[in-house]
Amino acid sequence: MDVSQAVNQRISTRAFLDKQITADEVRDWLATAQRAPSGGNLQPWRVIAVTGAEKQAVIDLAQKKLAEDPRGERTDRPIYPKDLWEPHEARRRKVGEMMYEKLEIPREDKAKRIQWFSRNFRFFDAPLAVFFVIDERMGHGQWAHTGMFMQTLALLAEERGWGSCFQECWGILRPTLKEHFGLGESEMLYCGMAVGYPDPDHPVNQLRAERADVDEFAELKGF
């Protein structure tokens, strides 16, 4: 598989097969991704990978906290900016409707939509869950480099026949997860990631989000 193929076929996988990934495979995957770009070689990321009982403990914790308040815990780093503007808000809504269309869950069936959304906090039943941690003292550049590391992991997952789904939704439980994982005083959990072998027959994995044409976001000058 070449890089272009990996980029083209990567999707947010939301249904997985009951097939495990070994510790040796995870270590090799993480080590290979360490060649991702890192300004000044700071390597500002930290990773916590959980499976089995450790993953279930996180799921149970999430269920308990969200039962107390479905909105989760207060955060000064929301998933999306307040009052998201166009065309970004339209894109966000469109991909959501595309997903529910694949799942055949109509807009008026709020209960089923909520039930499906709750699968986020079970990692969509993926065998492996990965959390990305960054020190809050890091600047915007280090956040960008952490994102490059995350993208590298997603592409390497494709090469291995795995699927992945980045899950910023875990950010609504940052205080609880900080305590659960015993993070340092200035450390924060940024994002989760569900990883495993994709279920090729599940309709949600047929979703392919639309992307803007190059001319919508790029200017080519001096050519």
Score class of each variant (00 low, 15 high):
Lys221Arg: 07
Pro175Arg: 10
Gln20Pro: 01
Ile48Leu: 13
Pro81Ala: 11
Ile11Met: 12
Lys102Leu: 07
Asn120Tyr: 13
Glu216Gln: 05
Gly163Ser: 13
Cys191Gly: 09
Arg93Glu: 15
Phe131Leu: 07
Thr146Asp: 05
Met148Glu: 05
Gln151Ser: 08
Ala129Asp: 02
Phe124Met: 06
Ser4Val: 02
Leu155Arg: 10
Ser12Glu: 10
Arg74Ala: 14
Gln5Met: 06
Arg160Asp: 05
Leu66Ser: 06
Glu185Lys: 06
Asp201Met: 15
Gly147Asn: 03
Arg92Thr: 07
Thr176Ser: 04
Gly96Met: 04
Arg91Gln: 02
Val7Lys: 02
Asp215Ser: 12
Leu128Trp: 06
Gln206Met: 08
Arg119Asn: 13
Glu158Ala: 12
Ser118Asp: 10
Ile21Tyr: 01
Asp215Trp: 04
Ala212Ile: 06
Glu89Val: 15
Val3Lys: 04
Ser186Asn: 12
Val130Gln: 14
Phe223Val: 14
Glu187Phe: 08
Arg71Trp: 11
Asp24Gly: 06
His140Arg: 01
Val3Trp: 10
Gln5Lys: 01
Ser12His: 13
Trp143Gln: 01
Ile114Gly: 09
Val95Asn: 01
Val133Cys: 11
Pro203Asn: 13
Leu17Ser: 04
Leu156Thr: 01
Pro106Asn: 05
Gln151Asn: 10
Gln56Thr: 06
Gly161Gln: 13
Thr51Gln: 15
Ala23Thr: 15
Lys178Ile: 05
Ile172Glu: 11
Phe217Asn: 00
Trp45His: 03
Trp170Ser: 04
Phe117Val: 09
His180Cys: 02
Lys221Thr: 00
Asp69Glu: 14
Pro198Ile: 02
Val26Tyr: 03
Lys65Thr: 08
Phe132Arg: 10
Arg27Asp: 04
Glu216Thr: 06
Asn41Lys: 07
Ala126Cys: 15
Thr75Tyr: 00
Glu216Lys: 08
Glu25Val: 11
Glu54Ile: 12
Ala6His: 00
Phe166Tyr: 09
Tyr190Asn: 11
Ser186Tyr: 08
Ile172Tyr: 12
Glu97Asp: 14
Val130Ala: 12
Gln167Ile: 03
Pro200Asp: 10
Val204Phe: 01
Asn120Val: 15
Ala209Phe: 07
Ala129His: 05
Asp76Val: 11
Gln206Ala: 14
Phe131Gly: 02
Asp201Ser: 15
Arg107Phe: 12
Arg71Ile: 03
Leu84His: 02
Met193Pro: 02
Arg35Ser: 02
Phe16Thr: 00
Glu68Ile: 10
Val133Asp: 13
Leu84Glu: 00
Glu219Gly: 13
Val133Tyr: 07
Gly163Tyr: 12
Asn120Arg: 13
Glu73Met: 11
Ala23Ile: 15
Arg174Ala: 09
Gly139Arg: 00
Ile105His: 03
Lys221Met: 03
Arg137Met: 01
Asn8Ile: 09
Leu103Trp: 14
Gln9His: 05
Arg71Val: 09
Glu210Phe: 11
Thr51Tyr: 10
Met99His: 04
Tyr100Ser: 05
Arg35Lys: 02
Arg122Leu: 11
Asp109Glu: 03
Lys112Trp: 06
Glu101Gln: 10
Leu177Asn: 09
Met98Cys: 08
Glu185Val: 04
Thr32Lys: 10
Cys169Asn: 08
Glu104Met: 00
Trp170Arg: 10
Phe121Leu: 07
Pro106Phe: 08
Asn205Gly: 07
Glu101Trp: 01
Arg77Ile: 03
Phe223Gln: 09
Met138Asp: 00
Phe123Ser: 04
Glu108Ala: 15
Met138His: 00
Val58Trp: 01
